[in-house]
Amino acid sequence: MSFDWSFLWTHMFDLSPHYGVGLQRTLFMAVISMIFGVMLGMLVALARLSKIRVISGLAALYVWLLRGVPELVILILLYTGLAAAGIFRFNDITVFGMVLPAAMQAAIFGFSIREGAYMGEIFRGGIMAVDRGQVEAAKALGMKRIATLRRIILPQAMRVVVPPMGNQFTIMLKATSLASVLGVPELLLTTQTFAAETFRVFELFIGLAVNYLILTTVWTFIQSLIEARLARHEADTTTEGPLARARRHLFGAATPAGRRAA
């Protein structure tokens, strides 16, 4: 069977009869899991930085566990494993008039707790990167701990946190494809189903790859704009515009000609 170009062009942006819904599910899972993951990550970071040993220890244990186990294993344990053991079974629920299927709940739950571990480490790094003098200045002005955290530490930590957080979202966009294993008909599973009907696996998966590339590329540009906005108080904002920033994200930092020769 030869490669069918016309089939690829026809179905590039319409991988199956359920393409639109699949795309929606992919984006929905990525965005919701990222939001939960970021909130959880904040708590994990604060817990890890706690002076109370038990709390920081528990947070460290959490990070170790969720970063050390493959995501797919986490998902299957949560959805299939817990149900098989009779411990917990996800059921379809209705949120704001929308049915949230059991498998999708398990997937979002799994993505969120995994993201919480990674974001926890990213936030911790960001908070630790804030100069102690900034905290002392806030204290000396009579600001309390919570106000100092909210108004001084976190906004400054964001400069360090946002670039890796953007990368995490790129990873999340792609990782949602794992939900197909639980039977969530997102982009990958709808394509797979259609491929099974048409036997055009190669064409359809090239099309699917292009679809993921478009998602991650669009996100990269959005991320560049956010980073440029956050860097507005740096002295050298003019040196790297959003386009150069996006190029760096997509292809890595440029090598200066002189250094390449050396």
Partner: peptide, 30 residues
């Protein structure tokens, strides 16, 4: 502490805020 002003060797201005925002932050918050 609010009644005791302190000026540091390294200034420690909040660098994510403009000068005016630096000056009005604690009066508003505290």
């Amino acid at each position: 502490r609010a009644g005791i002003g302190m000026v540091f060797q390294n200034f420690n201005l909040f660098w994510h805020m403009t000068l005016l925002q630096n000056v009005i932050e604690a009066p508003i918050q505290v």
